[in-house]
Amino acid sequence: MTRKVVLYALAIGFALYLVVPFYWIVNISFMHEVDAASVPPQFLPADPTMANYLGFVNPSTDQALVGSNAVGDTPYALLNSLVVALSTALVNLVLGTFAAYSFSRIQFRGSQVLLIVYLLTRMVPGIAIIIPFYLVMRTLDLLDTYGALILSYTTFALPITIWILKDYFRTVPRELEDAARVDRCGWFRMMWSVFLPISAPGLVAAAIFSFMTAWNEFMFALFMTSSISSQTIPVIAANFATDLNTQVTLMAAAGVLAVLPPLVLVLICQRLIVQGMAAGSVKG
Results as ranks from 00 to 15, higher is better:
Asp35Gly: 09
Tyr17Ile: 03
Ser104Ala: 04
Leu95Phe: 13
Asp62Leu: 15
Gly72His: 01
Val84Cys: 02
Pro132Asn: 05
Asn80Gly: 03
Val94Glu: 07
Pro75Phe: 04
Asp47Ser: 15
Phe98Ile: 09
Gly96Val: 00
Ile131Leu: 03
Gly126Gln: 07
Thr88His: 05
Ala77Thr: 05
Ala37Trp: 12
Pro75Leu: 04
Pro45Glu: 05
Asn69Val: 11
Phe98Tyr: 15
Thr139His: 14
Gly13Arg: 07
Ala89Asp: 02
Tyr17Thr: 01
Gln112Leu: 10
Ile131Ala: 04
Ala99Gln: 04
Val136Ala: 05
Thr74Ser: 13
Asn69Arg: 14
Met31Phe: 03
Ile116Leu: 11
Ile25Asp: 05
Pro48Phe: 05
Gly96Ser: 01
Ser38Tyr: 12
Met137His: 06
Pro48Asp: 03
Leu119Ala: 01
Val113Phe: 14
Tyr53Ala: 01
Ser111Thr: 02
Phe22Gln: 01
Ala100Pro: 00
Ile12Cys: 14
Thr74Ile: 13
Pro48Ser: 10
Val26Gln: 07
Ser60Cys: 00
Leu18Lys: 07
Gly67Gln: 01
Ala64Met: 10
Tyr134Phe: 13
Ile28Val: 13
Thr139Ala: 14
Gly96Asp: 08
Ala99Phe: 11
Tyr134His: 12
Gly72Leu: 09
Gln42Asp: 14
Ala128Phe: 12
Phe133His: 13
Phe98Glu: 06
Pro45Gln: 06
Met31Tyr: 03
Ile106Trp: 07
Val124Gln: 00
Asp47Arg: 12
Gly72Asp: 01
Thr139Cys: 12
Asn69Trp: 11
Asn58Ser: 14
Arg138Gly: 15
Pro59Asn: 03
Asp47Gly: 13
Gln107Arg: 15
Arg122Cys: 09
Gly110Ile: 07
Val84Phe: 04
Val71Met: 07
Leu135Ser: 10
Asn58Cys: 14
Gln63Tyr: 14
Ala37Val: 09
Pro41Lys: 02
Tyr53Trp: 10
Pro41Gln: 02
Val19Tyr: 13
Thr121Arg: 02
Val136His: 07
Pro125Leu: 08
Leu79His: 06
Tyr76Asn: 12
Ala100Tyr: 04
Tyr101Asn: 11
Ser38Glu: 10
Thr49Phe: 10
Ala99Leu: 12
Gln107Glu: 11
Leu79Phe: 13
Leu79Gln: 15
His32Leu: 12
Ile127Asp: 00
Ala46Trp: 11
Thr74Trp: 02
Tyr118Gly: 02
Asn52Thr: 09
Val117Ala: 10
Tyr118Ile: 05
Pro125Gly: 08
Asp62Gly: 13
Ala99Glu: 02
Arg109Cys: 10
Tyr134Arg: 10
Gly96Pro: 12
Gly126Asp: 11
Val26Ala: 08
Ile131Met: 10
Ser102Leu: 06
Leu135Glu: 07
Phe14Tyr: 15
Ala89Tyr: 03
Val84Asn: 04
Pro132Cys: 05
Phe56Lys: 09
Leu114Arg: 03
Ser87Asp: 04
Leu65Met: 05
Ser111Pro: 13
Arg122His: 04
Gly67Met: 08
Val113Pro: 04
Ile25His: 06
Leu140Met: 09
Pro59Asp: 09
Leu120Lys: 04
Leu16Lys: 00
Pro40Glu: 00
Leu86Gln: 01
Asp141Pro: 13
Asp62Cys: 11
Gln42Trp: 12
Leu93His: 03
